[in-house]
Simulated scan of single mutants.
Amino acid sequence: MTETSRLTLDLDALASNHAVLRAAAGGAEIAPAVKADGYGLGAALVAGRLWDEGARSFYVARLSEGVALRRALGDRAAAIYLLDGVTPGSAPAIEAAGLTPVLNSLPQIEAWNSHARGRVLDAALHIDTGMNRLGLRPEEAVVLTGAMDRLKFLNITLVISHLACAGEPDHPLNARQLARFTEVAALFPNARRSLANSGGIFLGEDFRFDQCRPGISLYGGGPRDVPDARIKAVATLEAPILQARVVPRGESIGYGAAFTAQDTTRVAILAVGYADGVPRAAHPRGAVWFDGARRPMMGRVSMDLIAVDITDCDAARPGAMMQIIGPDLLVDEAAAAAGTTAYELLTRIAPRARRVVEGR
């Protein structure tokens, strides 16, 4: 009997999603985001397969992620863009790992230019077009072009920005960001341009430019935060039944007595909980998939256990595996039930889940 949760990673589904996004992007390069350890699925694993599928550029957030990815790729040539840019003291390590920093501020530009010391180093430039996180304001970019000595030792190969509302095609911010990005990127005519994430790819040709940076839709999430028939499930999280029990009418289940049985109810106790990545907030709308049907969770998710309604389900016996997310219960659906997103659900899957890889 399996005693713990199991995470199955389908690399063929990952490759299929890459092909869908590449086709949708037209002639734009697909540069996968593999930050947060490949959205929780293993950056080295997913980047290796995506490299086999033709990806030659990748995005990470932290310096440590970039160093690890460069090591994992070995002699496979690829550009690795570091979204954090040049943080204090990081320039030597960035260069040593062969990473391309995405410069987010005038101080970062100064730090990378100073580090070059007479050589010419590649860099990407991040323009904030309305998200107000990282990136130069458009007016800062204008000032920069008037003081090109700040870029004296830098080869700006790419200008990027990031869409805040790409999953909502009709949101007015999409058009505003596109207009701002088009205007500012024109100040750097020799640089390639990148704006679209997963959702942005499907906003239309105007958003795709030279390079697209998909993340969630590579890993099974829809580009609009709802299931999309074109996108296949990459991660399947399952957990075994530890015990099947009968709860009499009027008795409660779990911490806080948050659920009370209205009738005599047969319940399965699964070996999975929030320590494995199942959101505590999944109660009261969460469900699992078993024997051809959705089975509602009952009571609060605890650290190591959840309870599931198996009334009238004779197949539910100790040792049987129930699907938490996967092809029958898509990650967008499970995330919505917990009031969160597919991004958070995937990146929260814990190492305790035994990992199985298919499609190597």
Rank of each mutant, 00 (worst) to 15 (best):
R352C: 11
F153E: 14
A111R: 05
R348V: 14
E251Q: 15
D291S: 10
R352Q: 10
R192N: 07
N104C: 03
S5T: 12
R249A: 13
D12F: 01
T265Y: 08
T4W: 02
T100H: 02
N174K: 07
Y255E: 13
Q262G: 15
S64Q: 01
A233D: 06
M131E: 10
L136V: 06
D263F: 15
G146N: 11
R300F: 03
L154A: 11
D332Y: 04
R354M: 14
G204I: 09
V120S: 10
R150M: 13
G98N: 03
G359E: 15
I310N: 03
I156S: 14
T340S: 10
D75K: 13
I306A: 07
A28R: 03
D312A: 13
G199Q: 08
V20Q: 12
A179G: 00
I231G: 02
C313T: 09
P240F: 08
D225W: 05
P223W: 12
A335L: 06
A239K: 11
R176N: 11
G40Q: 10
L99K: 09
H171M: 12
P327T: 08
A353E: 10
N132P: 05
R119A: 06
L173P: 07
T236E: 12
G222N: 11
I30K: 07
P101E: 00
R180G: 03
E139D: 15
Y81V: 04
G66C: 00
T4R: 06
L21G: 03
A72N: 05
T265E: 10
A293T: 11
Y39T: 07
F259E: 14
D12S: 09
R76I: 04
S90C: 01
T264R: 12
L187R: 10
P214E: 05
I325C: 04
R176S: 08
C212N: 06
C313A: 10
